[in-house]
């Protein structure tokens, strides 16, 4: 280790003790008895494959929606006046400062059969029966996108901020319309932020479980719920470890794949 790396030592030790060691320990658990039986179960049974697939599907959708909502938001915050930007930050970060239960119940009040949205829709005559927004996939999606949005907005905000304002101005001066400035200049120069935000949101989505349990009405099953069941209820730690290891490997694989296909660009 070079002398310059010394200041990073505490962080490295922390990672080693609190991250690497437990992960290795977990892998050890999953191979208890020297067999791959638990992996065979995790990858061989329809139930677990289905739930893995569900989990990745949800994570992907949450990521897409976070991107669709988060890009314009991060972009506006990066290009507006400091006053508006601060206000934007407060609203974006608010869900992070709120307890998961408060947040979830707030959505229940808004999305329920007799919730605010449905009452407005019915009073406006747009629908006669309440639309099911809660206790299903839609509810989970809304709740998760809400919580994870900051993780998308902040990297995109940062990426837009890093662009020298002269660059879009130059493009405009050279004859580019607003749309072309976006597609040819902003979008390629913020790919870094999009990638970072998407990976964060995707990976965090994989571990969700309170939100799907409450807003999904039990219908939306994610792998974290099954792992938790194995740890706390079934006390089958080897199997829980095998499920976790599969999730970990799959996550790394997706990350590697995503990195291959994005071409991160450095801006000055």
């Amino acid at each position: 280790m070079t002398t310059r790396a010394w200041p990073a030592l505490p962080a490295l030790i922390l990672l080693l003790v609190f991250f690497l060691f437990p992960v290795v320990r977990m892998l050890g658990f999953s191979l208890e008895g020297g067999t791959f039986d638990w992996y065979a179960k995790a990858l061989g049974e329809g139930l677990y494959l289905r739930v893995f697939w569900n989990t990745f599907e949800i994570a992907l959708l949450v990521t897409v929606f976070c991107l669709l909502l988060g890009y314009p938001l991060g972009f506006l915050m990066a290009t507006t006046t400091p006053g508006w930007a601060t206000l934007g930050f407060i609203f974006v970060l608010l869900p992070l400062w709120t307890s998961v239960l408060v947040r979830t119940y707030a959505w229940m009040v808004l999305l329920g059969r007799n919730g605010v949205f449905n009452r407005l829709l019915m009073e406006a005559g747009l629908t006669t029966d309440p639309i099911p927004l809660l206790h299903n996939f839609t509810g989970v999606l809304i709740g998760m996108v809400h919580v994870l949005l900051p993780y998308m907005v902040l990297p995109i905000y940062g990426a837009v901020r890093r662009i020298d304002p002269a660059i879009p101005a130059a493009a405009a001066g050279l004859g580019a319309s607003g749309g072309r400035i976006f597609w040819r200049i902003y979008l390629p120069l913020t790919l870094n932020g999009i990638f970072a935000g998407s990976v964060l949101v995707f990976v965090l989505s994989l571990g969700f479980f309170i939100t799907p349990a409450l807003l999904g009405g039990g219908r939306v099953m994610m792998i974290a719920v099954l792992i938790e069941q194995q740890v706390r209820e079934a006390l089958n730690w080897p199997f829980a470890a095998a499920l976790s290891a599969v999730l970990l490997v799959a996550t790394f694989a997706i990350y590697a794949l995503a990195q291959r296909f994005s071409q991160p660009e450095t801006t000055r």
């Binding site: 002269a166 660059i167 130059a170 001066g173 801006t267």
Partner: peptide, 13 residues
Amino acid sequence: IGMVFQNYALFPH
């Protein structure tokens, strides 16, 4: 109008 900026504002990508 053609313009050359202080830091050139070349498109880095």
